[in-house]
């Protein structure tokens, strides 16, 4: 007879139990509301833990660190055989987090960040992916420009007729944190063909005048909010 103690439920949430045990547990859970709630709570914490550390995953790795590993490769592969890595996709896209409820993506078991890139790249042809990367770089520049020079409420527009993609970047609010760093909330509207996507971000300015997005919130219901 199986008991729904904490360690069993934790192993269940972590997917560590065999199919038969899972079936027994799910049977018991259907009649034990408290345990069920606890399972949801555990799932939520596990998913939030993943998302909470996502930012590190999408930061630029310090070159010194890469060099530690690659300095020998450069000698071994002197003639340029080194396979190039795909250019980094934009940070911001991968730190997407649904606004209304972080919970929404939690139950999908996603690490938050990969949600966007996964669904798009699955269907995208290589060429489209390449164009998108170029667009992404251009949009990064436009966003940086908007955050650097636009007053709050003023929109900076960008478009690429070749890819049928356009974007609008609007700084919404400006703060200064305790260390004196300027941070701005912004709204980003991107139209690709007939698809529209609105995201809200929070970016802070570094010493070099680059705005680094710390949080990005994907709003699927922008039309209702605004």
């Amino acid at each position: 007879m199986i008991t729904l103690d904490e360690s069993t439920l934790i192993a269940y949430v972590d997917g560590e139990l065999d199919a038969e045990t899972v079936r027994l547990i799910e049977n018991k859970l259907s009649t034990d509301a408290t345990a069920k709630k606890y399972v949801e709570h555990l799932r939520e914490i596990a998913a939030l833990s993943r998302i909470a550390f996502n930012a590190t995953l999408h930061e630029v790795v310090p070159q010194a660190l890469k060099d530690t590993i690659l300095k020998n490769a450069a000698i071994e592969e002197a003639s340029g055989n080194v396979v190039a890595f795909a250019p980094r996709a934009n940070n911001e896209w991968r730190i997407a987090l649904p606004m209304a409820a972080a919970v929404a993506c939690l139950f999908l078991g996603l690490g938050g960040g990969y949600q966007y890139s996964k669904t798009t790249t699955e269907n995208a042809l290589k060429l489209a992916a390449f164009t998108q990367q170029q667009d992404q770089s251009a949009m990064d520049l436009a966003l940086n420009q908007a955050l650097e020079v636009n007053i709050s409420g003023d929109t900076q527009s960008w478009s690429n007729p070749d890819s049928n993609r356009s974007a609008a970047f609007t700084p919404v609010r400006t703060y200064q944190d305790k260390s004196g760093t300027f941070c701005r909330e912004y709204r980003k509207d991107i139209h690709t063909d007939d698809q529209a996507e609105t995201t809200f971000g929070l970016a802070c300015r570094d010493d070099q005048g680059q705005w680094k997005t710390r949080y990005l919130i994907l709003d699927n219901k922008a039309d209702q909010t605004f």
Partner: peptide, 27 residues
């Protein structure tokens, strides 16, 4: 270390940094 392993190691650097951040709590 062959070039392929080196590249794989570079590719997992973001995850290694994340784990290390969790351990050290300091970037």
């Amino acid at each position: 270390m062959d070039a392929r392993t080196q590249q794989e190691l570079v590719a997992i650097l973001p995850r290694l940094r994340r784990f290390a951040l969790g351990l050290t709590r300091n970037e």
